[in-house]
Amino acid sequence: MTEGTAKKFMFVNRTAPYGTAYALESLEVVLISAAFDQDVSLVFIDDGVFQLKKGQQTKGIETKNFSPTYRALEGYDVEKLYVDQESLVARGLTEADLIVDVTVLPSRELGALMDEQDVVLSF
């Protein structure tokens, strides 16, 4: 019923999870946009790919481990998760290291997706 007003929102994540608050803040805004039935996609580039690393244990740094939230996104109809292939490779990671299913794309294909968006938000 809100299809006519849905905009394409892309969240660009380029920072590692715990050194700054960007990753957590991004997740919060993602959930808010999903609640408003927008067409949401997430992109992970550069150190942003570390947000999706499996097996995060944050007890020792006394910080909330928000990585399970990425697995809950599906329940909010947020299913478009894209990862920059070059960023993964540069960090010694493969898709098997990630906590959720993602679409791994070459850099320029991510750029083309970005061009299609109505709103792009950077974290």
Binding site: I45, D46, S107, R108, L110, G111, A112, M114
Partner: peptide, 14 residues
């Protein structure tokens, strides 16, 4: 920082 490098790698034009 690598912001410009990332931009040049990801974006195709504009």
């Amino acid at each position: 920082r690598n912001s410009l490098a990332a931009c040049l790698r990801i974006a195709g034009s504009g």
